[in-house]
Computed example of a mutant assay.
Amino acid sequence: MTATETDLQLVAMLLRIDTDADTLKIIRTYVSAAESWLHNAGVEPDYDDGLYTNAVAAYVGQQYDDPEGGAAKAGDVTLSAMAEQLRLAQAAKREAGGDAV
């Protein structure tokens, strides 16, 4: 599952970014990178989970504010902690017989 236009708008709104067509292209690229980063960390997409959406927004915000990479990025402790919490919660849902995503 990739972000829908509604998901993209929500991420932009959370970050208080105006969403003209050019900016949405940038956000879409950063959201895709966030989804890949989270997937590689063992987290499946779930925009119904507020923590997942917040992790995507945090990643996008870091990229948008500092695209050259001077500040902490995906290795940031906060993002790493969010990814771990999501991974553990999804694993617990699977073990309990519920859908993880």
Rank of each mutant, 00 (worst) to 15 (best):
G42S: 01
A100Y: 03
T23D: 12
A71P: 05
A81I: 15
V77C: 10
A34C: 01
Y59H: 03
A100D: 10
A71C: 03
Q62F: 09
T2D: 14
L88Y: 11
A55T: 06
P67W: 10
P45D: 00
E44F: 15
G50N: 12
Q9D: 07
T53D: 00
A3Y: 05
Y30C: 05
A33V: 04
E68M: 14
T53E: 08
V43H: 03
L86V: 04
T29F: 12
A71E: 12
D22Y: 04
Q85A: 15
Q90R: 06
V77D: 13
D76W: 06
E84N: 11
Y64N: 08
T4K: 04
L38P: 00
E84D: 06
A33S: 09
T6K: 13
L15S: 08
L51E: 14
L15T: 02
G70P: 08
R94Q: 11
K73F: 15
D76T: 01
S36F: 11
L51Y: 07
G61R: 00
G70D: 04
I27E: 06
L88F: 11
L38T: 05
H39Q: 13
A81T: 08
G98E: 14
E5Q: 04
T78Y: 14
I26Q: 11
I26N: 01
S32L: 10
D66C: 06
G42T: 08
D48W: 12
L51C: 04
L15V: 01
A71N: 14
D65N: 03
P67H: 05
L88E: 10
L8V: 08
D76M: 05
A12H: 00
A89T: 06
T4W: 03
V43L: 02
E5L: 05
Y47L: 11
D65S: 07
M13I: 15
D99L: 10
A21L: 11
A100L: 02
E95L: 13
T53S: 04
I27C: 00
D46I: 07
Q85G: 12
Q63E: 14
Q62E: 08
V56R: 00
Y47R: 01
E68R: 15
A96S: 12
L24T: 03
D20T: 09
D76Y: 05
G61M: 01
K73R: 10
D22A: 13
R94I: 12
H39V: 08
L79A: 03
K93A: 13
T6M: 12
P45K: 00
T2M: 06
Y47I: 02
M82G: 03
N40W: 06
G42V: 14
K73M: 15
L86W: 04
T19P: 06
V101Q: 08
D18N: 09
